[in-house]
Measured scan of single mutants.
Amino acid sequence: SQTQRTQDENEARRIAEEWKRRGYDVEVRNRNGHWEVTWD
């Protein structure tokens, strides 16, 4: 799996939607004030 971090929730949601469209299983988490998008 791969993880991308961002400070911006909207960006995190956009990234998550992009990977979901490509057929990946995606998880979005808030950790210590930043957002992590993990896909595999």
Rank of each mutant, 00 (worst) to 15 (best):
1 S>F: 14
1 S>A: 12
1 S>D: 08
1 S>R: 15
1 S>Q: 11
2 Q>I: 12
2 Q>R: 14
2 Q>H: 14
2 Q>N: 14
2 Q>S: 10
2 Q>F: 11
2 Q>Y: 08
2 Q>D: 07
2 Q>P: 08
2 Q>G: 15
3 T>Y: 08
3 T>W: 09
3 T>V: 13
3 T>E: 06
4 Q>T: 13
4 Q>R: 13
4 Q>M: 15
4 Q>G: 05
4 Q>P: 04
4 Q>N: 06
5 R>K: 11
5 R>S: 10
5 R>H: 11
5 R>C: 14
5 R>T: 11
5 R>M: 11
5 R>G: 06
5 R>Y: 14
5 R>N: 07
6 T>F: 15
6 T>H: 07
6 T>I: 10
6 T>N: 04
6 T>P: 04
6 T>Y: 15
6 T>V: 15
7 Q>S: 12
7 Q>L: 13
7 Q>R: 12
8 D>R: 04
8 D>H: 07
8 D>Y: 06
8 D>N: 10
8 D>V: 03
9 E>T: 02
9 E>Y: 12
9 E>V: 06
9 E>D: 03
9 E>L: 08
9 E>P: 06
9 E>N: 02
9 E>F: 08
10 N>K: 12
10 N>G: 11
10 N>A: 14
10 N>F: 11
10 N>E: 14
10 N>Y: 11
11 E>F: 05
11 E>I: 07
11 E>M: 07
11 E>C: 12
11 E>P: 00
11 E>N: 04
11 E>S: 07
12 A>H: 01
12 A>T: 02
12 A>N: 00
12 A>V: 03
12 A>F: 01
12 A>P: 00
13 R>Q: 08
13 R>E: 05
13 R>D: 02
13 R>N: 08
13 R>L: 10
13 R>P: 00
13 R>I: 09
14 R>G: 04
14 R>Q: 09
14 R>C: 12
14 R>M: 08
14 R>A: 10
14 R>P: 00
15 I>Y: 03
15 I>R: 03
15 I>D: 01
15 I>M: 08
15 I>N: 01
15 I>K: 04
15 I>P: 00
15 I>A: 03
15 I>H: 02
16 A>R: 03
16 A>D: 02
16 A>E: 09
16 A>N: 02
16 A>V: 04
16 A>T: 03
17 E>F: 04
17 E>W: 04
17 E>S: 05
17 E>G: 04
17 E>K: 04
17 E>P: 02
17 E>T: 03
17 E>Q: 06
18 E>Y: 15
18 E>N: 06
18 E>L: 08
18 E>G: 05
18 E>F: 14
18 E>C: 15
18 E>W: 13
18 E>T: 04
18 E>S: 05
19 W>Q: 09
19 W>I: 13
19 W>A: 11
19 W>S: 04
19 W>D: 03
19 W>G: 12
20 K>V: 10
20 K>W: 13
20 K>P: 02
20 K>E: 14
20 K>S: 09
21 R>T: 12
21 R>N: 14
21 R>P: 03
21 R>E: 15
21 R>A: 14
21 R>S: 14
21 R>K: 15
22 R>N: 09
22 R>I: 08
22 R>S: 07
22 R>Q: 12
22 R>M: 14
22 R>T: 03
23 G>Y: 02
23 G>V: 00
23 G>A: 01
23 G>K: 00
23 G>C: 11
23 G>E: 01
24 Y>D: 01
24 Y>R: 05
24 Y>L: 05
24 Y>G: 03
24 Y>A: 04
24 Y>H: 06
24 Y>M: 06
24 Y>P: 00
24 Y>K: 03
25 D>G: 04
25 D>T: 11
25 D>N: 13
25 D>L: 10
26 V>Y: 02
26 V>T: 06
26 V>F: 02
26 V>D: 00
26 V>G: 01
26 V>W: 01
26 V>H: 00
27 E>I: 14
27 E>F: 06
27 E>T: 13
27 E>G: 04
28 V>R: 00
28 V>N: 00
28 V>Q: 01
28 V>D: 00
28 V>G: 00
29 R>K: 11
30 N>K: 13
30 N>S: 10
30 N>A: 10
30 N>P: 07
30 N>D: 08
31 R>E: 10
31 R>F: 11
31 R>I: 15
31 R>H: 13
31 R>L: 14
32 N>R: 05
32 N>E: 10
32 N>K: 05
32 N>P: 02
32 N>Y: 06
32 N>A: 08
33 G>N: 06
33 G>E: 04
33 G>Y: 02
33 G>H: 03
33 G>T: 06
33 G>Q: 03
34 H>E: 13
34 H>W: 15
34 H>Q: 13
35 W>A: 00
35 W>N: 00
35 W>H: 01
35 W>L: 01
35 W>G: 00
35 W>V: 01
36 E>H: 02
36 E>P: 00
36 E>S: 03
36 E>Q: 03
36 E>D: 04
36 E>L: 06
37 V>S: 00
37 V>A: 02
37 V>H: 00
37 V>Q: 00
37 V>D: 00
37 V>M: 02
37 V>T: 02
37 V>R: 00
38 T>Y: 13
38 T>R: 10
38 T>K: 08
39 W>N: 03
39 W>E: 02
39 W>R: 11
39 W>F: 09
39 W>Y: 09
39 W>C: 06
39 W>G: 03
39 W>K: 06
40 D>G: 14
40 D>M: 15
40 D>I: 15
40 D>E: 14
40 D>F: 15
40 D>N: 14
40 D>H: 15
40 D>W: 15
